[in-house]
Design a binder for these strands. Structure first.
Lengths: 332, 332
DNA sequence: CGATAGGATGTAACCGCTTACATTTAATCG
DNA sequence: CGATTAAATGTAAGCGGTTACATCCTATCG
């Protein structure tokens, strides 16, 4: 592996000059630039990125922490982040937090210790205070999904309350009056907000919130199954079910079918996230689309703008979810 | 950010000693070790990873190139790789090749220029010669999926021929005689091998290969739909369809259903990869499981063993796919 | 009790680059 | 044509660690 010294020697210039043409910073005569360029080519020189990082105090890598590296939602997120950052020549270091507090902290510290120029975090378990603390440290932090007032301009989030509202409204609009709700774990802000939106929609429609028809699930298919089973043994009538994510909706659909119910004729179901497998379900699941890729891209841009001085980028901090209507919902 | 010099000064020792206790290499008296440790704590010292990398010529990061960062298959792969490597304290730098030759090369060069200690590659388009060339360079390369004789011990792969064979055999075993096959692009080795396995199974059963019943798809749902449409207008009878992946199987199922066919009563269908959404399909798709996570973990271990001297690890290079029987296949 | 071996600690070179500043070279002008 | 100034290039000091080697203790032993 050739070094900058060898290039300088071969080209008959100083290493400062080589550095200049590499980064095309400073002035260099066209003639010497050519000498350097050809020396680089002859030696097949590639700058040592570790030395570059050390000397420039910039690693050109950004750390990403997301709950999981698989699954439709996080896959799309990571994919768009990588795409945007890779095009800008930045490295993406990934870690998975598994929605576990210790693991999330561990990953954050790992990334901070990895000389990342910035962090993009999608966490579930870690406290806002902790996030505020590290965001005040030397390395910039972008929060994906989640809003903290103290770092509002560093947050990319979706309006979950609005999403819950839209989901429920879509059923109300179609004449449904008796709605069940399968929530995610309520300690997760996302779940809580969606539920709040659901309840607001009911109230605005002059309907009462029947607590029995609100079941707390786990964001997994099994939780959706359990919730639906519970709902069906409740003896309380309902014509529509709003689910806080698509996995649970899939589970709910399955149980409904097993109980001899036809979707959407007997019961309408709507999911949330509009994850790509919704189209494999039968009937195809209506859902709430959340611009996942857009958000990932935006987080990446936020980093490019704040950390890598691409100041001309426009940042959108909050995204509005929207209704994606398919076959699982009908009118009364 | 405190440096090792400040720690040394505060502890009243030389920086070499600090370095020794940090890496616990060399001998250090318990007393001085404590002095250093407390100085580290007082200053909240974290070693600068860039400086460490430069001085030790080891970045502790491994580059990963996979076709996509989303989707059930690659998600599982990446997840297991990250998990294994993260536990060993290694950084994972991810890139997506998008099955495009230029992009794949670009990513490989990017990773090579990122001072990675090793590379894990899952490529589609790049040539074997190119892979051999870079594998002879200074940074070790592990090939995920794909076999190249010249670097056999660096290849982690699944026996695709066997997988194709098993898939077809599963239908033959159940009395099917007339089988159609929806292939992936035959220029992809994986597709080619699976098809070869299919044909071997037919021949061993004394059946003729009817070329009309072999359709080349694109590994996407749309391709499966197109292929099934074509098959149904062919006028050649068949009772089972072997698909080279689950996405195409999903597409095929949809078209079959639209044509009024019941699965598996009218036609049995089997997919390949046993990707997680198979369970959302109705009927649930039988498939060929390929130990995706295992392979990812093995690739990571291969790196740990070869590059990070964890010599005690056992490596399995080839994985045998296995049948996962669900509802989409029945007996004649 | 002085020589000695071996363990503990220190010294300094080096990893390969960036960059502020010094120096040289070339262009401009009275 | 020499002085002035700007442009091009060179010099050298870091960046913050690792590590081979030198040096200094201290316990052991004849």
């Amino acid at each position: 592996m050739a070094t900058i010294y060898e290039v300088a020697a071969l080209a008959g210039v100083s290493l400062a000059t080589v550095s200049r043409v590499m980064n095309n910073s400073g002035k260099v005569t066209e003639k010497t630039r050519q000498k350097v360029l050809s020396a680089i080519k002859v030696l097949d020189y590639t700058p040592n990125s570790m030395a570059q990082s050390l000397a420039s105090r910039r690693s050109n890598s950004v750390g990403v922490l997301i709950p999981e590296l698989y699954g439709p939602y996080f896959g799309a997120l990571l994919s768009s982040i990588e795409n945007e950052l890779r095009d800008a020549g930045k490295r993406v270091i990934v870690t998975a937090g598994h929605s576990d507090k210790a693991r999330e902290k561990d990953c954050i510290e790992f990334l901070l210790g990895s000389s990342c120029d910035a962090l993009i975090l999608h966490v579930h378990a870690v406290s806002p205070d902790y996030l505020i603390k590290i965001s005040q440290g030397p390395v910039p932090v972008i929060l994906l999904n989640g809003f903290i007032a103290e770092m509002a301009d560093k947050c990319i989030n979706v309006d979950n309350e609005h999403g819950g509202y839209v989901a429920t409204q879509s059923l109300l609009d179609r004449g449904h009056r008796d709605l069940a709700y399968i929530s995610g774990p309520v300690w997760k802000t996302d779940s809580f907000k969606r539920l709040a939106g659901h309840q607001r929609a009911l109230k605005e429609a002059g309907l009462e919130v029947d607590r029995r028809l609100i079941i707390e699930g786990d964001f997994e298919e099994a939780g959706g199954q359990a919730a639906m089973t519970q709902l069906l043994t409740l003896g309380v009538a309902f014509t529509g079910v709003v689910c806080a994510n698509d996995e649970m909706a899939a589970g709910a659909m399955e149980v409904a079918r097993e109980h001899g119910l036809t979707i959407p004729d007997d019961v309408s179901i709507i999911g949330y996230d509009d994850v790509y497998f919704t189209r494999y379900l039968n009937p195809k699941l209506s859902s709430i689309g959340v611009h996942t890729s857009e958000m990932g891209r935006m987080a990446a841009r936020c980093v490019l703008k704040n950390t890598y001085e691409q100041t001309d980028l426009e940042i959108q901090n909050t995204f509005k979810p929207h209704l994606v209507l398919r076959e699982s919902v009908n009118s009364r």
